[in-house]
């Protein structure tokens, strides 16, 4: 009877991780602390990396979408090139489309990708035959930094898209 009670007590104590009534030895507590420190370090590193890459990929995906939308818009809008200023105004509208999803964003408009500014969008017209419409338009992102909290990644020259110019060629018109 005594043996049975004793063995039950030992089994419970073993499950609990220590012998009932016997205080934990100081060295054991140290081991547990050390194990926790090592495991926590590894776990936190993994989780931090997971968050960092997950967030960076999420932002990059948004950049691809924004550049694609801007490229599609640039391909189909009228190319007005009466003066150099008109060409620059057209490029500004394309940059706004990439950043805000709107060619003429209102005051306080929010960027579709956090911290993306029109200055970080490159718009380059690929020249066609002399005196003719451009053959294509390149839209790319440069010097955009994703702050992944633990580490920052900077994208330059990517994502980049090239769409053929299929809009109206208006060399003597001004941008409205």
């Amino acid at each position: 009877m005594m043996d049975a009670r004793h063995s039950t007590c030992v089994a419970q104590a073993t499950r609990a991780g220590r012998i009932a009534g016997v205080p934990r030895v100081t060295g054991e507590r140290g081991h547990a602390m050390l194990e926790l420190a090592v495991c926590a370090g590894v776990m936190v590193s993994f989780l931090a990396g997971t968050f960092q890459f997950g967030y960076t990929f999420y932002i990059y995906n948004q950049l691809v979408t924004a550049a694609g939308n801007g490229g599609r818009y640039a391909a189909m809008r009228a190319y007005r090139s009466a003066t150099q200023q008109d060409i620059e105004r057209g490029a500004a509208a394309i940059r706004n489309m990439v950043v805000y999803g709107d060619t003429q964003p209102g005051l306080g408009a929010e960027a579709v990708v956090p911290n993306l500014t029109p200055e970080q969008v490159d718009v380059r017209w690929v020249p066609g035959d002399p005196g003719a419409a451009p053959s294509a338009v390149d839209v790319s992102i440069h010097q955009y930094t994703v702050d992944g909290v633990f580490r920052a990644f900077t994208f330059s020259g990517r994502p980049s898209v090239e769409f053929p110019f299929v809009g109206r060629f208006a060399p003597s018109e001004h941008e409205p």
């Binding site: 691809v64 694609g68 490229g71 391909a75 294509a136 898209v161 090239e162 769409f163 053929p164």
Partner: peptide, 11 residues
């Protein structure tokens, strides 16, 4: 890939 095929089909 989708942005690429969009651009390629238009091209």
């Amino acid at each position: 890939a989708q942005v690429f095929t969009d651009a390629a089909a238009m091209t």
